[in-house]
Write a protein that binds this DNA or RNA. Structure first.
Lengths: 150, 150
DNA sequence: TATTGTTATACTCTATAACTATA
DNA sequence: TATAGTTATAGAGTATAACAATA
């Protein structure tokens, strides 16, 4: 009943992916530290720019965070002039979030540094395999996010 | 000085790998629950069989856990007859760890179930890409573990 | 004195529940 | 009453430090 032959001795995917994720975060940390950003703050900066979101709850969900957890992050980013948070005139319960130009600039700087480090790591796998790897990873990521708990 | 061209809009590796790891763990959880195992307990069972280790500290390091954290895990597995823990006659500070046949059997059962689920997830990427993906993932995993904090 | 395993403690991260202000 | 955002509290998970046994 097993569709595909299994290599009984290979490591579980999770046993490779989870530690790799930890290592990637650790590699990013010095870059984030240099700019006084936490991982969550960087996630906010990254995500806000891609898709302008209208509610904090939607932002929290998008970066897989609890809505209560990003509030201190937003407070900090706002006080540093990296984003603005103003009540929506149409529904004053809602806070409209948008990056300032300083916020966008910082995001670009940090992202470039982060991805430079990643490129160095990706350099460990043959150039011919890189594209396939990234495409597959993206597919698995999207599948895993679209079907939570599968 | 940038070796490879960067796609400025692609997600950071960490932003894909970390959530994917979370999703993989979540997917394993029901399997582990069925057998009364925590993730750490499964990690212990998996790793003990591959390379017989002589000290608990070495086991802890191998599965990226704190040495104090696996003690309760070992207590539980021992009380359930899945592994034995006896003092090394040559150095009675050291506890020799070995799986019982029941432990090995449980490990095999759970690993098969876990990897079945993983195969279903891997089925989402084209068959021609799978081998390359797994090979690349393994390479990155090994590099990331051999150079902690890079 | 150094090391293995253990226990006790403190700390960080995360989730839950309660509160406010708007609707 | 219901919802967005916020605050306060409690819980889980993790790391740090102190301890006993052995070398």
């Amino acid at each position: 009943m097993n569709a595909a032959p299994r290599d009984a001795s290979r490591l579980d995917l999770a046993a490779m992916v989870v530690p790799l994720g930890r290592a990637l975060m650790a590699a990013e940390q010095p870059v984030l530290d240099d700019h006084g950003l936490t991982m969550w703050a960087y996630a906010v900066l990254s995500h806000l720019d891609e898709t302008p979101l209208r509610t904090q709850a939607a932002l929290a969900e998008a970066i897989h965070a609890d809505k209560t957890r990003i509030i201190a992050v937003l407070d900090d980013l706002e006080s540093r002039g990296l984003l603005t948070r103003r009540p929506d005139p149409k529904d004053r319960r809602v806070r409209l979030l948008s990056l300032t130009s300083e916020g966008r600039q910082l995001r670009d700087t940090v992202r470039a540094a982060v991805q430079d480090r990643e490129e160095r790591m990706l350099g460990q796998i043959p150039a011919a395999d890189r594209e396939t790897f990234l495409r597959s990873l993206r597919t698995l990521y999207e599948v895993s996010q679209s079907r939570p708990g599968r």
